[in-house]
Design a protein around this nucleic acid. Structure first.
Length: 653
DNA sequence: CTAGCCTTGAAA
DNA sequence: TTTCAAGGCTAG
């Protein structure tokens, strides 16, 4: 954390963040070109390569062909505000204007995503999720209103009416593929926007999730979620009326059972009704829909329906509206993840649910479940064209959430289920090395006393003790142990203070205005004053607040620790490349984990990493304070002394 | 851009 | 060796 970019975040970490988020590695030529740019611009241009910005750029061009640049204008000097926007942290109007002065003119292009008041945790989860998704993926064009009152909703509704008078208010379709089952596939996000009146139909946005949660989840291979947002507050709160339906796989299990051969599969293509040619991208489809899906995904196409997304798709008119055809492909269960990013040919698909093996597994799982389809009111199904022709099921239009393809349980139970990558499990297993139950007897007496003249010394001793544990923890980390000893020393010298600070903050999350030092020993503002570290104390409290708000859990915490430890920015490292790869790996695991909590959503990942920049500043302050205390007792605090002096730490065990 | 046919190659 | 689900090619 010693080498910080203008934004306060280490350049390598910034790169990893943007790479992990966009998952569009630069090719050789791009690399060479980008090496000629100054570092900060390189980062900006790379961050700007994210699919969403490209999409909004394209949209801008379409709608304002005379306007140059738009979001692509990357002569930004404020990397941080850009990153904030990209990562979905709170974007203020100033941030927006930093990026694009013409923002004001574009206001009428905003998409209104109106989420309702959250009366209980189930509502809150869905509202959080919608907000997070929308913030993450539609921030360029979305205005998110989380409203608790009918009047606020009304005002949004009326403003949307005034801003979109001749075109109807927008419908949003987000197709979102998570990379958790197959990290190599990376992450793809497809967004298309379409006009459909919130006010006229009572339904606003339709957010379509296509995702795989976890590899050990039987049904994970085939999850499509349709989330509908209504402006009607009464309907908004009706979250418990979750409609759970299956799509293609469900209807298939009924009609074909376990006989999976093509001959036995006489059903027409679920998308257009043509003759099925085989199992493509997760479901049985015809050759044309297979090709259409492939082209659409590979070429990253976005379509707009000019008929409010209500087009019926059949063999005759399937060419007419690609937007609705693609939406139907997804709703019927075609998997974005089955499209190979590397375009390799041949072989069986490794994507779970696409191989015949996976199919059988999925069908057996589906059969086992034998769950009834819960239906809600069928009174209004007019504006949902993507119905399953085989299941005969319908989506009630007045519900907040309709979830497809999943088994028992409420939406939020499923949404809260996280997938823990193995890397994180391994790191978590080392946490026992950080236990604080082993205080030496002389330090055992419960709390710091108010006016202990030895407070400095005690804090120093405890800090040193904790440092030994941090070093031991690091040495036992497989990722850390695999690098050269010289590098290990350099890394530890670079980040020991950050790790100390993060540890204290993390352990203070459940405290109020107290900073954890060791075991039951904490520092409050009064003691901080006594120690002369009020500024540091306040900064720590601030960071604790952020951690608390983000609801950082233990897996996220350990991942952050490892990211801090193996930062490749330190000067003089031998195996910098290797460290970059390691950091990327952890970043990816962390993102998979955070985004597998739908509720927390991907923007949590971004903000967590942003907080590391705060941490690095706190760490510098902490280092200074420790330094000023050291001379009083440098004998006792050997390891601390060595680290502060920057000498090679011999004892790494 | 569509859709039918062809080629490929890992898994069964 | 066979199968089959990927990607590729190309006439329309």
């Amino acid at each position: 954390m010693s080498l910080l970019s203008d934004s306060g975040i280490s350049p390598a970490l910034l790169q990893v963040i943007s790479q992990t988020l966009s998952k569009a590695p630069l090719n050789k030529e791009q690399m060479e070109n980008s090496n000629q740019l100054p570092r900060s611009q390189k980062l900006v241009s790379r961050i700007m390569k994210q699919p969403i910005s490209l999409l909004s750029q394209q949209k801008m061009k379409q709608e304002h062909p005379d306007r140059q640049g738009g979001h692509g204008r990357s002569t930004l000097n404020n990397v941080k505000s850009l990153l904030k926007m990209k990562l979905g942290t709170h974007s203020s109007t100033e941030d927006m204007e930093d990026l694009d002065g013409s923002r004001e003119d574009d206001r009428e292009e905003y998409v209104n995503i109106v989420t309702g008041s959250a009366k209980d945790s189930a509502d809150a989860n869905v509202v959080d999720m919608l907000t997070a998704i929308a913030t993450q993926h539609l921030k360029d064009s979305a205005r998110i209103v989380t409203s608790a009152s009918q009047s606020a909703l009304q005002s949004v509704a009326s403003s949307s009416a005034s801003t979109s008078c001749n075109t109807s208010s927008p419908q949003v379709i987000i197709c979102y593929q998570d990379s958790s089952t197959n990290p190599e596939l990376g992450r793809k996000v497809y967004v298309s926007q379409d006009a459909s009146s919130i006010l006229e139909h009572g339904d606003g946005s339709q957010i379509l999730f296509h995702t795989a949660l976890s590899s050990d989840d039987e049904a994970s291979g085939n999850m499509t979620r349709v989330i509908r947002v209504s402006t009607d507050e009464d309907e908004m709160t009706d979250v418990q009326q979750v409609e759970v339906q299956s799509s293609a796989s469900d209807s298939m299990s009924v009609s074909t059972g376990n006989h999976l051969s093509l001959q036995d599969h006489n059903e027409p293509c679920p998308i257009c009704g043509d003759v099925v040619s085989g199992y493509h991208y997760g479901i049985f489809t015809c050759e044309s829909c297979k090709g259409f899906f492939k082209r659409t995904v590979q070429n990253k196409k976005t379509f707009v329906c000019h008929r409010c997304g209500e087009c019926e798709i059949n063999i005759e008119n399937r060419k007419r509206c690609p937007a609705c055809r693609f939406a139907k492909c997804l709703v019927m269960g075609m998997k974005l993840g089955a499209i190979r990013t590397d375009r390799t040919r041949g072989g069986r698909s490794s994507y779970d649910g696409c191989s015949s093996h996976g199919r059988t597994k999925a069908l057996i799982a589906e059969k086992k479940r034998q769950r009834p389809v819960r239906r809600t009111s069928e009174s209004s199904m007019s504006n949902m064209s993507v119905l399953s022709p085989t299941s005969g099921a319908s989506y009630g239009s007045s519900q907040l959430v309709a979830i497809l393809n999943k088994g028992e349980g409420t939406a939020t139970q499923e949404l809260g289920k996280a997938f823990v990558p193995q890397v994180l499990t391994d790191v978590m297993n080392l946490e026992s090395l950080m236990c604080e139950e082993d205080l030496p007897p002389e330090l055992m007496d419960e709390k710091f006393s108010e006016d202990d003249p030895n407070l400095f010394l005690t804090v120093l001793q405890l800090t040193e003790l904790k440092l030994y544990k941090i070093v031991r923890w690091a040495r036992n980390l497989p990722q850390f142990a695999s690098i050269a000893t010289d590098d290990q020393i350099l890394l530890l010298q670079n980040c020991w203070c950050d790790l100390l600070a993060l540890n204290s903050c993390w352990r203070s999350v459940h405290r109020h205005d107290e900073i954890h030092i060791y075991n039951s020993k904490v520092i409050d503002e009064k003691k901080a004053k006594y120690l002369g570290i009020v500024d540091l104390f306040m900064k720590l409290i601030e960071l604790v607040d952020h951690l608390r708000r983000l609801v950082i859990d233990q897996y996220e915490y350990v991942a952050l620790k490892v990211l801090i430890l193996i930062g490749p920015d330190v000067r003089g490292l031998r195996e910098q490349k290797k460290l970059e790869e390691l950091q990327e790996k952890i970043c990816e695991a962390l993102q998979i984990y955070t985004s597998s909590h739908y509720v927390q959503s991907p923007n949590k990942f971004g903000e967590m990493l942003l907080r590391l920049s705060e941490l690095s500043r706190i760490s510098l302050m902490l280092k200074d304070h420790l330094k000023s205390w050291m001379p009083s007792n440098s004998q006792t605090c050997g390891l601390l002394f060595e680290l502060l002096k920057g000498e090679n730490v011999k004892d790494l065990g």
